[in-house]
Every structure is written in C-alpha cells, then in structure tokens.
Simulated scan of single mutants.
Amino acid sequence: MFRYFRWFAIVIITQITASCRKPGTASTAFYYWKTGFNLNEQQTTLLKQTGNNAYIRFFDVSWNDKQQRAYPNAVVQFNELPAGLNITPVIYITNKTFENIPDTAVATLAGHCNKLINDLAGEKHISYTKVQVDCDWSLSTRAKYFSFLIAFKKLNQKQLEATIRLHQVKFKDRTGVPPADRGVLMFYNMGKLNAGLHQPNSIYNGDDADKYIAYLGSYPLKLDIALPLFSWAIHIRDGRVIQVYGKIGRRQLADQVHFESVEGEANYRAKTSFFLEGIYIKQNDIFKLEETDSNALDAAAKQLTQHLPKQKHTTIIYYELANIDPEKFNAETIRQVSARF
C-alpha cells in the first residue's frame, strides 16, 4: 500500500511539474516563397498574431547553359507591405550555379546578389538586419559556395544565415560547415519521392529524422528551425512518379466523380481521363497524398527538442505563408508548436 501511494505521489508531482514548465521563448516566423508578394486578410492577421516576422524569397540564382552565366530568376514583386512587418530577405541559389561558375566569378556573383537585395529593399524602404542564403551544396561545390558566403558577408555586413539539411548535420566533416553567423535546419523533405503507396511520408517522418538528429548537439553553428506547413500530391503513372503538385489536395482528390480511394485513405486512382487545375490526368493515374497537420508539427517539435542544444534565441520558421491552409493551421496552433522551443 505504501509503495502504491509513493508511486501515486510521484506521478502527481511529475504532472504538476510538467504543467508548470515555462513555455519556450522562440520567435515565430513564416517563409513567403511566391514571386508576387500580396497577403490576404487571413495571412496578414496570422502574421500579426504570431510576431509579424516574414522570411521573403527575394529571388533565385540560376544558371543559363546557353549564355554560360548566372542570372536572377523569379524576382519578387512587392505589392503592399503590412505596417510593422519584420522582413528577412532570402535568396535561393541552385547548386548547378556553383557547378558551372568559374572560381574567379564567385566574388562578382556575391556583389550582384548584394546589390539586387539592397535595390529591392530600397524600393520599398525595407530595413533588414539579416539575410538568409538557401543552397543545397554538394562536395564538389562546397569550396565555391563557401567562398560566395564569405564574399557576400564582407559586402553585406548584416547577419548571414545559411540553410542546413539533415545530412549536412550528420556528415559535417565531409560536407563542411558554412561560414555563416547562423544556420537554419530544414526539418522537412526527409525522404525520397517514390511511387510506393505504403512508403513513409517524404515531407516528415520521425524514423528518417532519427537517423540524423542525434548529431545536432555537436553541430558548431547555432541553429534556427524550419518546419513544414505544406502538403502535396505525388502524381504516379505506370508505377513512376511524374510530378508533384502542391495545389492538389484532399478536397480535389475526394471528388468521387473522378477519383476512387485505393490502398489506403491517402491514395487515389483516376476513374477517367480529364483535366484538373490545368493538369492532364490519365485514367488509372494514381495520386499519393502526403500531408502535414498539427499532429505532425507537434511530433517534429518534440523530436527536435530532445536533441537541440539549449540556446537563448531561436526562431521557428514555417514553410510557407502563401499556401497555408487556415483550416489546419491557426495562430494558436503555431504558437503552441513554437513554445516547445
């Protein structure tokens, strides 16, 4: 009897301690990845309710094979900026750019990128304190990419962030650690897209993440975290993946006139050939729906906090605001996830 009461008391104390634990102090932010920056009322309200922080993709840097040069692509077009919005410019650079650009042109590319960021910011009187560079570099492009970051930082003089993939955390001795002030761990897109209808979710699944996150404690850069808010449908024909669509979701696939469920509630077969959202769908094509919901976000946050070193200032960046589903994600849901950090 005494042992029972002692066990019961321990459980109660543990629950009280857990309920009194202070929430984390992480900041909340959102990526915005569309070329046209134009927020609707729901997006504006969500930003205001969660801290008014936006990481806006200003442009991509791509490689032109014909002209043999790097060029800015998908440059953002600003419409109206909400008052009080804290903006961090983001640029995405294709790995192909660093595969092809000569070593002697890397510093020049850094200068062009810095100028375009400042020109775009100047047009809308955007004051920024940091820049994020997104590039999934490889072993063969590491030297040129790291040289780019050094040259860019020297010119820009703001805090420099670099995106980090999970494999780059685990194999940091091979892939290298980018010369940046801070890293941003992209905690999604973990598995390979595949046509297997019973394969784990490739956006986020805990088993794949477990192979890497134990190495977070030894990573030398302080890390912010990027978490997914998106879902997509994988288009499969004759057993092969032919495309991935973010604009096709459960609402479209639940149309029983055109689709039927097959091998689970997240897989759909086309009953007939037709066009959907401008996309040609052939009879018997399969769509495998991979979704992110609040439960997946919460699981990702719990998994990360078991391995992420404690730090005073962390930003949780959600990808992404332009295509968010307000029925799945509201301000309270987002705040609860961020509070875990």
Rank of each mutant, 00 (worst) to 15 (best):
C135L: 04
K170V: 05
D208P: 08
G206V: 01
Y31N: 07
T292F: 06
H313D: 06
Q132N: 03
L229N: 06
Y92S: 13
G176I: 07
K192S: 08
V184L: 11
N73M: 05
F98E: 06
A331I: 03
N201Y: 02
K192T: 15
A70Q: 06
R6G: 10
L185D: 00
I203G: 10
L160F: 09
W33S: 08
A195H: 01
I236A: 01
W7G: 03
A322P: 13
H198R: 07
C113E: 07
K34E: 12
N52F: 04
F259R: 06
I334N: 12
N86G: 01
A70T: 06
R57Q: 14
R6I: 15
N86V: 02
F30P: 05
N95M: 05
I117D: 00
D298M: 13
F230L: 09
Y319I: 13
I317G: 02
I317V: 13
Q243D: 13
L139T: 15
K154E: 14
T292N: 09
P228D: 01
L297T: 11
L149K: 00
N52G: 04
S19V: 07
K288Y: 03
N40S: 05
Q252V: 03
N267F: 11
K328P: 00
V241L: 04
D65E: 12
Q199N: 07
I242H: 15
T94G: 15
H307Q: 14
L139I: 10
A209R: 04
Y318C: 02
S19A: 03
C113F: 05
A105G: 04
A9V: 15
Y318R: 05
F148T: 00
R69M: 09
F59P: 10
N114L: 03
Q336K: 10
A254M: 15
N100V: 11
I234Q: 00
I281A: 02
D325S: 07
K328S: 01
T175M: 04
G249P: 02
D207V: 11
F148R: 01
Q42N: 08
K158W: 08
A143M: 04
P326Y: 02
A226E: 12
F152I: 04
K96Y: 13
G36N: 08
S294V: 11
V11D: 10
R340D: 14
A121N: 05
A300R: 04
G246I: 10
N194R: 01
A18Q: 07
I13Y: 06
E320Q: 05
L276R: 15
F152E: 03
G183W: 00
K222Y: 09
L155I: 04
D255N: 13
Q15N: 06
I203N: 01
Q199L: 09
H258L: 14
F275S: 04
A254I: 09
A226L: 09
F148K: 00
L81S: 04
I164A: 02
N64Q: 08
V257Y: 12
L109Q: 03
N284R: 14
K288A: 11
R165T: 08
L304Q: 09
G183T: 01
